[in-house]
């Protein structure tokens, strides 16, 4: 059996971390939202009800990206695993998890629509902006979003592994300066309305494509950083 697959199996030794916790987060976010919706309906609330709880497990993936690296990488080194095998195995496992969850989101979206928003006209999985796309775009959208957040955490953690606090600090300050620069530029050129229109024009497909591009860049940078990281 290839060492890459063994890395994936190692990450899965504690199934709770990769599979259990995201499901618990999703289930509890969903049940809470449902409970609130029923209360709102009983209180006489009208119109479509939206819940943003579907993104809850995604933020957990950001933490998972950090955790998969900071805790498991030094252990993987002790298991005499190459950095490349560790990287590929971890990424492969996460991609598989993200894909399964993305399909699950899509299917739950179908159920949501079929049941009239769980009987209370609520929107948890099938947010209109996403649900109006074809099935492939929907699945890809969720998939890319999860991968992107995971890669973000993973990349930040590789920076930490390689350059410790300094690396993370330089990166965050750099990112902050870039954002500040952009805001200053837009303000000075008085182009906020144009920017607003530009942002509103994004489609789910567009976000997916851009997110995928960014995730690939992060994945590449993570690997190059990790190659020279020391535990």
């Amino acid at each position: 059996m290839s060492r890459i697959i063994k890395v994936a199996r190692m990450q899965l030794i504690n199934k709770w971390t990769f599979i259990g916790i995201p499901l618990v987060i999703l289930a509890s976010a969903f049940l809470f939202t449902l409970a609130i919706w029923y209360l709102v309906r009983r209180g006489g609330g009208e119109g479509i009800l939206y819940g943003g709880g579907a993104q809850a497990p995604m933020w957990y993936f950001l933490a998972l990206g950090i955790q998969a690296l900071t805790l498991t990488f030094p252990f993987a080194m002790a298991m005499s695993v190459s950095r490349r095998s560790f990287y590929l195995g971890t990424l492969a496992l996460f991609s598989a998890c993200a894909l399964i969850l993305a399909v699950f989101y899509y299917l739950m979206g179908l159920v949501e629509i079929a049941t009239g928003g769980w009987g209370v006209d609520g929107r948890f999985f099938a947010l209109q902006w996403i649900a109006e796309n074809n099935w492939l775009t929907q699945i890809l959208f969720y998939f890319v979003l999860m991968i992107l957040l995971f890669m973000l955490g993973f990349f930040a953690a590789t920076l930490y592994m390689r350059w410790r606090t300094t690396g993370v600090l330089v990166f965050t300050i750099g990112l902050g300066l870039a954002l500040l620069g952009a805001v200053a530029l837009i303000t000075l050129t008085e182009t906020w309305p144009q920017v607003g229109r530009w942002l509103a024009a994004w489609t789910a497909a567009g976000v997916t494509a851009a997110g995928a591009g960014l995730a690939v860049v992060l994945a590449g940078s993570s690997y190059l950083t990790l190659r020279k990281a020391i535990v």
């Binding site: 063994k6 199996r9 504690n14 805790l71 030094p74 252990f75 002790a78 298991m79």
Partner: peptide, 19 residues
């Protein structure tokens, strides 16, 4: 040596048996 935070002792041996 650092071990994954959520690992129990037997899980570390389990991993080692893998590699």
């Amino acid at each position: 040596q650092k071990y994954p935070d959520d690992f129990k002792v037997f899980q570390a041996f389990h991993a080692a048996a893998l590699f």
